[in-house]
Design a protein around this nucleic acid. Structure first.
Lengths: 357, 357
DNA sequence: TGTTAACACGAAATCGTTTTCGTAGAATAT
DNA sequence: ATATTCTACGAAAACGATTTCGTGTTAACA
């Protein structure tokens, strides 16, 4: 079992200096053709590869991106990772992922673990607990240390950085308008608590669509699910809540749900209550994941294009990293003049399936 | 915008040597109480944190684990990652993930990218293309360089390393036996091509269950899906194939599918053909993902416990890394005497839902 | 008073690279 | 024959930390 070979070992073996080896391997014309050939041959034979850590230390950059997300067993987030990984890889970067598990503390711990030299920049989506607490000091701290951050999906105005979001508002508007066009008279909204920004925006979109269509909104038709209870593992609770909601509002003939789970659960409950989808009730969800595609009936949804989000985020981050490299510091002008941060909005798209007419 | 502060800067600022600062921060009793206090106060003020890269270089270990998987938008794999991340984090490690995309070449590129010092060891699941080619030189190469590998799920006998697998064979046996107990007379198997080892094992389990129950197997009842066609994005093809299969074998009253997608698609097709589930046909799938839970009817499946797999794999890897550290090298005895590698088998469990009686 | 031990700190090596600068010897120019 | 320029290479610094070893000062001891 031989450890990886180093420049020093090659140098000793070939009786030249370390510098000579290094130069020969990078085809410096400072080194004679003979020596270069000899060294390169030896290096190839022993499968020499420069040590990344040493390079990182020397260059003061690691060529790796830190991803920090609330959860990984989640179609949307894993799709985003795939997008990030794709462009990162193409542009010569690695990705290292941390999971906050929706916890404020784990988010901080993870950030600190990675911010100490392990990565060149962050791509992250804020945990629910952090959103609830509205404590963003750790983001400010890392930005102040000169480490760029790109936020996606769950972003927040209080932090100055590049952002990639989906057009939650207009996505919701489109969805609800489609229900209206499809002759729904009483459109329900099933959403989360307000502190998750995406939930709030989608709710606003719902209201906007109703208003511009001249429909007055009925607050009884809005169901806010308290996801502090672990819904994913207690479907019964969720379903019971929805069932109750449908029973007290028997006139509902259209449902806009802010995520897949709520949408699919609604369909399930509706069916149990003897309603036919899409004849008696039409349903549109948000996030185009596996569930939407494979549910029966398959679900019409607002697609978020997670992969595109990831790709954009990665490009944004790497662009900034390499810009910094080109014109170091002055990029960060004096404090008055803020850097101009970019906010990319990814358009949503309605994917029509069987749950609407 | 201030860069992160270093020992050297603290030293200069406080007019002591770098060594003194380092020692003071680690509470060495070599340093007087006064100086220690002063240095620690200063360090805290400037939020000093040692640079990970420098530490990695010095200690010749990075405290990070490389994960290399075929695909991340996949319930099973992301669950495994979650398991890995959980114990890695608890034990002070980071994880860096690479995606092979089922491609042999990308697998190699990713390995090489990470093997040059970025990580201390691998946890990986082999890509389909690699399995097909049966070319495992890159695994042998990295192992020979002294970097431990733990394989999970898609493993292979040709490579000597720790492994964590689910008991595919017995899982399949259990599933098929359950169908038999439930009075199914003609049990179909919907599986993948043989080169994916897990598919093969599950197929063998199917055969075994039939045999021990004294049922002679009918090869017409086995449908092998060629997943070289991108099934996930061409559901129609998959469904058409299954429909054809069901039509030519109208006597099928039980289906064992080697993954969720095939199982859910079978249910969908069956329903379209006017069959009631579970009355006319019972279905059991493999892998307990979102689909199984939320399908209607919900799917009885063989659960793989992905998270447990990840946790075991991480523990195995970290144990080995830290053992190496304790008794360096001799751990790798001479070539004759192989290290004793561990193969952990995670038991499967049948989760009964609505698709069986 | 001279010797030794304890204390508190600094210098330097090390991890593996890259890169700048210096220089011995050969080749060329004057 | 002397001055100059190449050629081909090596020494050393640097990245940021830890650790071993050495050393000057003071305190304790004989």
């Amino acid at each position: 079992m031989k450890r990886k070979i180093t420049l020093k070992q090659i140098a000793k073996e070939l009786d030249v200096s370390v510098s000579t080896v290094s130069k020969a391997l990078s085809n410096s014309k400072e080194i004679s053709e003979d020596t270069t050939k000899k060294i390169q041959a030896f290096a190839k034979l022993y499968n020499y590869r420069p040590n990344n850590i040493a390079l990182s230390l020397k260059n003061r950059k690691t060529k790796t991106i830190g991803i920090l997300i609330p959860e990984i067993v989640h179609h949307f987030f894993s799709t985003v990772i795939r997008g990030i990984e794709r462009v990162a890889n193409r542009r010569g970067y690695n990705v290292i992922v941390g999971l906050s598990n929706e916890s404020f503390t784990k988010e901080i711990i993870n950030m600190e673990m990675l911010a100490n030299g392990s990565i060149d920049g962050f791509i992250l989506s804020i945990s629910k607990e952090t959103l609830l607490k509205q404590d963003y000091h750790h983001f400010h701290a890392t930005i102040n240390q000169g480490m760029p951050i790109v936020m996606f999906d769950r972003v927040v105005n209080e932090v100055d950085c590049d952002k990639v979001i989906v057009d939650d508002f207009n996505g919701a508007v489109k969805a609800v308008k489609k229900l209206i066009e499809n002759d729904c008279k009483n459109i329900a909204l099933i959403t989360t608590m307000d502190y998750v920004s995406v939930g709030r925006l989608r709710t606003q979109g719902y209201l906007e669509a109703l208003q511009t269509s001249g429909i007055e909104h009925n607050s009884n038709l809005i169901l806010k699910i308290d996801d502090s209870l672990d819904v994913e593992n207690h479907l019964e609770l969720l379903e019971a809540e929805i069932a109750q909601f449908f029973k007290t509002n028997p006139n509902i003939d259209g449902v806009f749900a802010v995520n897949e789970l709520y949408a699919v659960s609604s369909m399930k409950v509706a069916r149990k209550l003897g309603l036919k989808i899409p004849d008696d009730m039409q349903v549109i969800g948000f996030t185009d994941g596996v569930l939407s595609k494979h549910a029966t009936p398959s679900l019409t949804t607002v697609s978020q294009h997670g992969q595109k989000i990831g790709e954009q985020a990665a490009n944004l981050l790497i662009d900034r990293l390499e810009a910094e490299e080109a014109e170091p510091e002055q990029y960060f002008t004096n404090n008055e003049q803020k850097k101009d941060f970019i906010k990319v909005v990814i358009e949503t798209e309605i994917i029509e399936r069987e749950s609407t007419k």
